[in-house]
């Protein structure tokens, strides 16, 4: 069984090559076991369709998003300035990432510090690839007739106005897409953002991610589609809280596509 060799920017540069796009993996996608599956699924898609890409590998650092949102601008600036030095050193023009938090920071906050790139969320990137005929997905398949509900990640949706790309991808799976009552502009947060995932929540009646998982379960969907590693983690935990993990799966859009393509 052969394995995919994930190219790094360092290797490419050593060979005098430049990839079309840098895949920014992010900390969750690099270290968290659940989120690593999303990273691998996306890499399989890139590999399968012969897209020219590379990752920073060990040279990538946290974008600084959780530190900045927790109020620690010093740590944010330390990360951001080092990342920008790395990215600019390689002459990176285009970045794709499966993490909406990295996406938002790279796209909206790095330009102020001299890091100006075209930044796409992986759902936007895949949608572009499909629209330009660069990749073609199979018709129908394993998800035909399945009920899927999509949870909007705050940092892709409200923060950056992207509601359509993940839905357009899901529609290609031939599944039945059901919207939650709170979706799109009114989609409820999974509870992870603003560095919440790194601390206990404040006193209240219930956990945010439990409430959101309940909303998703309320649709009767078989699959809760996410497009953020943190949302995937939080909602999975909420499903477990209701002991529904056997019946309902939480999956990233990239994982669903990889599965539909039998990758």
């Amino acid at each position: 069984m052969s394995s995919i060799q994930v190219p790094t920017m360092a290797q490419m540069a050593a060979n005098g090559q430049t990839p079309d796009v840098l895949f920014w993996v992010g900390c969750a996608g690099s270290f968290d076991q659940r989120a690593q599956k999303i990273t691998k699924a996306f890499v399989k898609i890139l590999h399968h369709f012969g897209i020219s890409y590379a990752v920073l590998g060990g040279e990538e650092m946290c974008t600084g998003d959780p530190a900045r949102r927790a109020g620690n601008e010093m740590v944010f600036q330390m990360m951001a300035q080092q990342n920008i030095a790395t990215l600019n050193g390689y002459g990176v023009k285009k970045i794709v990432t499966a993490c909406p938090h990295c996406f938002n920071t790279l796209k909206n906050e790095y330009p102020d510090l001299g890091g100006v790139y075209e930044v796409l969320h992986h759902t936007q990137f895949l949608q572009q690839m499909i629209d330009t005929g660069r990749i073609q997905l199979r018709e129908g398949g394993v998800f035909k007739g399945k009920k899927i509900t999509f949870h909007d990640p705050c940092y892709l949706a409200r923060a950056n106005g992207e509601y359509q790309a993940p839905r357009a991808l899901l529609e290609r799976l031939d599944a039945e897409l059901i919207e939650m009552e709170n979706s799109r502009q009114r989609g409820m947060c999974c509870g992870a953002g603003g560095a919440q995932i790194f601390k206990e929540s404040e006193k209240g009646d219930m956990e945010v991610h439990h409430k959101r998982a309940d909303e998703a379960l309320g649709t009767g969907a078989h699959i809760i589609a996410a497009s953020c590693p943190f949302c995937t983690l939080m909602i999975t935990d909420g499903i477990k809280h209701r002991e529904k993990e056997a019946q309902v799966k939480v999956m990233d859009v990239a994982e669903l596509i990889a599965q539909a393509e039998d990758l």
Partner: peptide, 13 residues
């Protein structure tokens, strides 16, 4: 360990 995820990603089925 940041890049450890890339060890052993099998190619298509």
């Amino acid at each position: 360990d940041r890049f450890a995820w890339a060890n052993n990603i099998p190619t298509a089925n």
